[in-house]
Design a protein around this nucleic acid. Structure first.
Length: 408
DNA sequence: AATGAGCACGGCACATCATT
DNA sequence: AATGATGTGCCGTGCTCATT
């Protein structure tokens, strides 16, 4: 189980509450959500209409949950207490049209342990968003499992939320808000060391992304924190290459000194692993000195197709197989490049869609200050813009989009 | 030039966590 | 209940930048 994906509703990404979520709570809750998401998408519940005002019940084996969440604690009472505290967490959902309207709900209203199983309820609002997945972040729970610091979890979820675009530059207070550290680490050095550095280091070490940050000052005070994320997508490939190299090295040891000597005087382009095998074979039928002389002779005579000339000059025509192999390798390469290109195209497409969404979301959360600035800008070019049919809202959204694009 | 705010850094004491 | 590990708050010193 390398990938255990949870499409987590964005409202649940940065849960704000009086008490902060410990990492055990956060991990456990992610698994509760994942379990519920499975049910609601694939079991008989998926056929039913989810009603916001109802609550829904799910069940998961205790050990399975502990295992998946990476909880190694054996003290069941301690876990019980953690789960109890988890129940006190409240999430607020604000109406997008009218910010005066809001809904507050407990993220885990009921839980029961019976026969090594957790039986728990979630409110319809949450279940519905798990099912519909309109604004969500796709979290790989496997990556999260080993994160120790609670701030790592929070920042990882944040980073993944903005995976396809860019983590917006945040005011320091904002970062403190989402990490629940407004009243903690007042000393910025401690905040940096205990929260930012620790989380970035841990995420970079243990997950599929690399996270770093830059700070920007406003006078003396550090006013902005700009997170930077890098994908580590080549990691698996690199590992494979590494292990492949090791196998090659082991193979190398098996060849005799004579084979290696001959191999070393081959033309550079012919120093392939297969040549060693072939040389070993040839050495059984021909003397070392003979082969050595042949190689030297053929190197001078035929620079274009050394090996073919060489083998012919001895007696056989094995080189054709190599040619075929080379051709195949070429085809493979072309195929891979095509796939890569398509992948890139798809990414760009998604990026565009995401940018649009992002810009709209940012517009909805725009500060008055920014709004005023944009209004000023708009008024400057009002005549032209109106003639083209661009109103203030679409002007701002396209401005935001433009800025986002620039960042990328 | 003097003053002070905000941060960097190391270090200490105490609190809390995670486990036995 | 005990304990080692880890987390947290706070202090002193020193630096830089901004204000007066």
């Amino acid at each position: 189980m390398k990938n255990e994906m949870l499409n987590k509703p964005n409202q649940l990404i940065a849960v704000k509450s009086q008490n902060q979520l410990t990492n055990i709570q956060r991990k456990a809750y992610n698994i509760f959500l994942k379990n519920a998401q499975n049910e609601v998408k694939f079991s008989e519940l998926s056929k039913k209409n989810i009603k916001v005002e109802n609550s829904y019940t799910f069940e998961i084996d205790c050990n399975l949950l502990h295992n998946k969440a990476g909880i190694s604690i054996k003290d069941l009472k301690y876990i019980e207490k953690e789960l109890e505290n988890l129940m006190g967490m409240i999430v607020t959902i604000r109406d997008k049209e009218d910010k005066e309207n809001w809904e507050k709900l407990s993220i885990l209203p009921r839980i029961k342990k019976e026969n090594h199983k957790y039986n728990y309820s979630l409110f319809g609002t949450i279940v519905k968003s798990l099912k519909e997945q309109t604004f969500f972040t796709s979290l790989n729970l496997f990556q999260i499992k080993n994160l120790k610091s609670q701030y790592s979890l929070i920042l990882y979820e944040l980073a993944i939320r903005y995976r396809k675009s860019k983590i917006p530059k945040m005011r320091t207070e904002e970062v403190r808000k989402i990490t629940n550290t407004q009243d903690r680490y007042k000393d910025f050095y401690n905040f940096r060391k205990r929260v930012l550095d620790r989380a970035c280091d841990e995420i970079s070490e243990k997950t599929d992304i690399k996270l770093s940050y830059e700070t920007k000052r406003n006078g003396r005070e550090i006013a902005y924190i700009n997170f930077k994320m890098e994908e580590k997508e080549n990691l698996e490939e690199l590992k494979q290459i590494e292990s492949f190299k090791k196998i090659e090295e082991i193979k190398e040891i098996k060849y005799s000194e004579k084979v290696l000597n001959l191999y070393n005087i081959l033309p550079k382009e012919d120093q392939l692993e297969t040549r060693k095998k072939q040389l070993e074979k040839l050495l059984k039928e021909h003397s070392y000195e003979m082969l050595k002389a042949d190689i030297k002779y053929c190197k001078k005579k035929s620079k274009k197709n050394f090996w073919g000339y060489f083998v012919k000059s001895i007696n056989s025509g094995h080189y054709s197989i190599i040619e075929v192999e080379k051709e195949k390798a070429k085809e493979e390469l072309v195929k891979k490049q095509k796939i890569l290109e398509e992948h890139k195209k798809e990414l760009k497409k998604q990026e565009k869609i995401f940018l649009e969404e992002q810009a709209k979301e940012m517009f909805e959360n725009i500060s008055e200050n920014e709004l005023n600035n944009y209004e000023k800008e708009y008024k400057k070019q009002e005549k032209i813009l109106k003639r083209v049919g661009v109103n203030l809202e679409s002007f701002i959204i396209s401005e935001i989009k433009y800025k986002l694009e620039e960042k990328i």
